[in-house]
Design a protein around this nucleic acid. Structure first.
Lengths: 208, 208
DNA sequence: GTGACGATGTATCGGGCCGATACATCGCAC
DNA sequence: GTGCGATGTATCGGCCCGATACATCGTCAC
């Protein structure tokens, strides 16, 4: 989940921890709160240990001789490795049931620009299915348990049901969009090539 | 978070683990998936150790003499203790920043029927504040970062912003409702409308 | 009658992620 | 020249999850 997000971000540019957190906070702002450092640093260490990312220099060209008592720590810049890119491709294409959870779906969606259309469609449809099930569950409760639950609990269910239905409709539009080959409805965006980077630039969305 | 939910549920009736999970699943269905057993049982053990809940009989009135090799385990029914009720009252009245997180707010709201009006208002307003902040953050990103983010990420932000605005409006209605002394707008509720006063007014619904 | 099966029921384990906390550096205002 | 907020890395205890294991019960097919 987090691995996917970090790998995806580092594919755009090398970064250090603090930067990763900020970028992820804006990229995933709609989905979840900023990722905690208590998660981030151990994760980076783990990914590094697994050879999926590597430390890139930046530790002051000369001063290398001594780790002084007051260890001049300095920032650690990570970049993605070839294995990391492979891993990212695996993870992004994974369409198991996990990919339809709230959090996981959000991350997958946020990297749709790096996902091929078939996978995008599979994920959108899986998510829609998931939301339809949740919707049915809520409708059942509202239909059958009106007597058993207090007014506040019912109001909560109603609000949840509303959000649910809304998301299903949203997904439906996106699916239709994908099928017709259109990019997601950019309401007012310039819609230009979003990545000026020199990256491999995999499957891009705008293409009739 | 979980403590609060369990304590709140057990205040309505003694229950065993499996039952707690099911009840919570319907009561909190709009908020979160069913709670995992890997969380539930350790939590029950912890609450029991802390004296907040106690094991109630139900282990077959007579057969008490021997724990046979194939230990007839049987279900363990828990009930809330006096300390447990106290603890629940403390937790429910807690209006620290934690109470405005998605999950935590949902649980608090689900037990509003056991919460006094002043606390309800404080929580609703705190949550509204929280959502307004999130909304501003999303608007900022959408206004400033249109060039930096790809079309899918932007679409995600737009959808998140929409959900955010919607929840703010929902909260506003609820706050107005509370202030005017009305119960939450029960779309088709029969109703002990007009809760006679603003006293705690614990649960009312019986029905075996 | 028996045996397969799904619902009910309790429990543990490894691991992801969080919040709190600690510490160090840097730029800038005052 | 110093205080202070932003930048930056790191650890620790603890909540919660998914996977897994195991036992009992009713019921329906055969």
């Amino acid at each position: 989940m987090l691995d996917l997000a970090i790998l995806g971000l580092l594919q755009e540019a090398p970064m250090h921890g603090y930067e990763i957190r900020k970028e992820l906070a804006t990229k995933l702002g709609a989905i979840r709160a900023a990722i905690s450092y208590g998660t981030l640093y151990p994760t980076l260490k783990r990914l590094h240990g697994a050879g999926l990312i590597s430390e890139a220099g930046e530790t002051a060209p000369d001063a290398e001789q001594v780790p002084p008592l007051t260890s001049r720590r300095g920032r650690v810049v990570y970049e993605i490795t070839a294995e990391g890119k492979e891993r990212f491709a695996d993870l992004i294409a994974q369409t198991g049931p996990d990919a339809y959870d709230d959090a996981s779906f959000g991350v997958h969606f946020a990297f749709f620009a790096r996902t091929d259309r078939a996978t995008r469609l599979r994920i959108l449809e899986g998510r829609r299915r998931r939301m339809e099930e949740r919707r049915e569950g809520l409708r059942d409760v509202l239909a059958r348990a009106t007597e058993r639950l207090d007014a506040y609990t019912l109001e909560l269910q109603r609000h949840g049901l509303d959000a649910c239905e809304r998301e299903v409709r949203w997904l439906e539009e996106l699916i239709a969009s994908e099928r017709s080959g259109r990019p997601p409805a950019t309401s007012a965006g310039p819609g230009s090539t979003t990545t000026p980077s020199s990256e491999p630039r995999p499957q891009e969305q705008d293409r009739p």
